[in-house]
Design a protein around this nucleic acid. Structure first.
Lengths: 239, 239
DNA sequence: ATCAATTTCAAACAGGTGTTTGAGTATTGG
DNA sequence: CCAATACTCAAACACCTGTTTGAAATTGAT
């Protein structure tokens, strides 16, 4: 699969003091989980690629699930901090006024796309994995994913509601959800697009993708409201 | 827009003479694969839920993979035929003139959403599974998925290009891809949305979802083009 | 009713999974 | 320098996976 594992480890440096066994496992795990999926990738594949003993995973992380969780967390906490920082900056600039929708979208999705474009740091692999994982039915993954996202989503939801006072809350939440889907596909697109593709399309340029997705997201977010958006009387369902 | 859901369910129903062992396996498989994922669901879970012997799967389908493939095909061929039929109708009406983008989106995504809303016939479970699977890294799934989709995608791509002569081809393909992502999340949304949700949002009404997604998709599709859409010189990368 | 084909069933198979063990080896602090 | 801690390693553990087998039951046509 990999032509040269040593070269890979070297290229895929950051976040932790490399060559430490822990870090080598995490790096190999990220790559393999992305390539083969969360369920299909075995510990023996990971330890093999990382060049460490099989038992090292359980020694350093406790279990397979704990490894997965830590692999997600080390990237996700950084990503979400960055998102909040971007939002903070915009809000500081706005001095209490509502942000422009484009700024909010930029803070949330732009930061993620920029991380996804970071091929060297391995961010690209991770974002592809993350996009897929968001709808995965595995309980424990969805559990800590929700936990890790809760605060960030709340902030961005509030900002969007403030920025679009004429749009009903429910509408905003759904559109945020749709945007997540578009981003997920955008990131894993380089692989999946061969289904849509007839060969003309191989522009994986990150900057172009960013511009494309951004236009699409803003267009969807600012689209005219659906006609049937007026709610039926909201009585409780009969038990 | 939804003329009659009962009629739809009826038309969508049987596909096979129910209560046959084959059909019971397929139904149970659909439900369980949706709930637990393609990789995690075991044959023993399926045969257990279907109330048939373990060996029945290999007897009737040959292998686990063959079961998965047939499970996808029986729904997917019908869905895609329906999509093409809808597109044919619109094109017949247009009499050679380009379709309106809304019609094309309606034919592709509207039909899918209507299938996803068909709770009785099990269409909902299937569409949730399908949306997740589209980006899955499993080789054999992606293989026959691409095969099953190829003709349909080609038709819709052509229709979109004809309908939007001012938009570059690559742009259209990407936006189609983004729309697929939004739809995927829209369908699996009832489950995934608790991440975005704070409790206010439990409107899983299919009709409302349809209207919401439709507005979003059209908005994204018709968004102003990104500025950087002019291509850099397309020389080959140096090896 | 009979025979042959089809379908079911319990049991076993070979192979892969995450995890544990206990003896080894490095590394570190006093 | 030595003891104590941290880490590595090969082997084994118990369990679960998809698939196969050969006999039993069911079905359908003559």
């Amino acid at each position: 699969m990999f032509t040269d594992m040593a070269e890979f480890s070297q290229r895929n440096q950051p976040i932790e003091s490399r060559n430490d066994t822990r870090a080598r496992i995490l790096d190999a795990a990220e790559l393999l989980f992305t390539a083969h999926g969360l369920e299909t990738t075995t510990l023996r594949m990971i330890t093999g690629a990382a060049g460490v003993n099989l038992a090292a995973v359980n020694y350093h992380f406790g279990s397979r699930e704990a490894l997965i969780e830590e692999m997600f967390r080390r990237r996700l906490t950084w990503l979400n901090q960055e998102r909040l920082r971007a939002l903070d900056d915009f809000e500081a600039m706005a001095q209490g006024a509502p942000l422009k929708p484009r700024q909010i979208v930029e803070a949330f999705f732009g930061v993620a796309l920029r991380m996804a474009a970071d091929v060297n740091g391995g961010g690209r692999d991770f974002m592809r994995l993350l996009g897929r994982t968001y709808t995965e039915p595995s309980d424990f993954v969805r559990g800590f994913l929700a936990e890790e996202y809760a605060a960030v989503i709340a902030r961005f939801k509030a900002a969007l509601i403030k920025a679009l006072p004429d749009v009903p809350r429910a509408e905003i939440l759904w559109r945020f959800h749709f945007m997540l889907g578009a981003m997920s596909y955008a990131i894993s697109g380089a692989d999946a697009l061969h289904i849509v593709d007839d060969g003309t399309l191989h522009d994986t340029d990150a900057e172009a993708l960013y511009a494309r997705l951004m236009s699409f997201l803003i267009g969807g977010l600012r689209a005219p409201l659906p006609e049937i958006s007026v709610k039926k009387p909201r009585y409780k369902k009969a038990a």
